Amino acid sequence: MMNKELIKDYLAEFIKTPLPWFIERELKVSETERRVITIIGPRRAGKTYYLYQLMSKNKENALYLNFEDTRLMEVSFKEVRDLIRMFKEISGKEPMYLFLDEVQNLHRWEMAVRELLDTRKFRIFVTGSSSKLLSREIATSLRGRTLTYTLLPFSFSEYLKAKNIPTQVLSKDDEALIKKELMEYLQFGGFPEVVLEKEKEKILKEFYDLTLFKDIIERHNLRNISLAKFLLSFFAQNFSCEISVNKILNFFKSQGKKFGRNTLYDYIDKIQDTVAIFFVNRYSEKIYTRESWPKKIYLADTGISRVVRFSTDTGRLMENAVFLELLRR
């Protein structure tokens, strides 16, 4: 049961506090009362700040609920409408826009969202860091009633914007600077905090550990921690490469460790759920060939590999960056 005093404190703070400064992102989403707009992406890709960007046009008519805020942790899906009523009491108006951040932390969130959508009163936006959890719940309760978008870390053009580097009417010196920045972008990636802060290596290590322990091991209650660690490290090192399940199984057999093929597939699925790793099928007209291994690995951000990479391979980094640019389109 939600604590009303904590909720009032949260709502009052949201109403009084101006939105923080943000770098405008290139992702464009639709606005409709008939469908929920779902935004997924890896941890720390900037989903919260993207919601700020969307609500900046009409904050006085918006309600933002961050389900990672401790004051909202006791809220149940049945109490969301009561929470909206409390907002109306405090602000004097009912919100037109609802922004639900990290919604997978609200148990049975899809039931609450479906009920709100049925009222036709709100335009609803939700974010999450778990593609499988969101897609599973959408499939059961919100099938055909959502539009899903993926927000990745900064593209190179967004990276240049964040660093106030001009991209129009370039001199030779400007071109040289952009080439230098491209190499840094490939090496450290485009996570907003990494781009804007100085301690890039430490921040990337923190992101990597959070993805491993919070988004993979804890979220899915995995018991074989060493297998989860190995797989994430293996994928981060072998980006822009084809990999096979047999290669992984043979490595563990050589180390005297045994586990079933189904266990391996299950752990790979959990890692893919973080939206930090993408597995691309081979092109073929035959569905069996498309869906079978080997698959090619790409990272949601080249900086992820920095934590476990032992050498610089500009060709592979560039290939990964091109894949991400195509994915954005």
Results as ranks from 00 to 15, higher is better:
Y49K: 01
F230G: 10
T263N: 08
K180M: 13
S155D: 11
E158R: 02
Q53C: 07
N238G: 05
V113T: 02
L54M: 03
I90G: 08
L326M: 11
E137F: 01
N224I: 05
R143W: 01
M318Q: 07
P153C: 02
Y159P: 00
L170N: 07
S305I: 02
V29G: 02
A112Y: 02
I297E: 10
D266M: 12
T38F: 07
T140E: 11
K8Y: 10
L152F: 05
E13K: 13
P153A: 08
T289Y: 11
R261T: 13
F154D: 11
R120H: 14
V195P: 04
Y10H: 13
L51I: 09
K180D: 14
I304Q: 08
S141L: 11
N250Q: 14
L72W: 07
F259L: 03
T289C: 01
N164L: 02
D301Y: 03
E201D: 14
V275Y: 04
E60K: 15
L133M: 13
G128Y: 01
V194H: 02
K295P: 09
F87S: 13
K295F: 06
N61T: 08
I90A: 06
Y185S: 08
D273Y: 10
S233C: 03
N61R: 15
P192S: 12
S240W: 11
I178F: 03
Y283F: 14
N221W: 07
N320E: 06
L72A: 04
Q272H: 10
L231C: 00
D118N: 12
K28Q: 15
A300N: 03
S56W: 00
A300Y: 00
H107L: 09
L117D: 06
T48M: 00
R316T: 05
A62V: 01
V195Q: 08
N224M: 11
R306T: 12
E68L: 10
T17S: 14
E33Q: 14
I23Q: 02
G315C: 04
Y52R: 03
L182A: 08
Q272G: 14
K88S: 15
T302I: 05
A276Q: 13
D273R: 11
L116V: 08
I39C: 00
F125N: 07
L182M: 14
N224R: 15
S131P: 00
D273Q: 10
Y265R: 10
E181S: 04
I90V: 05
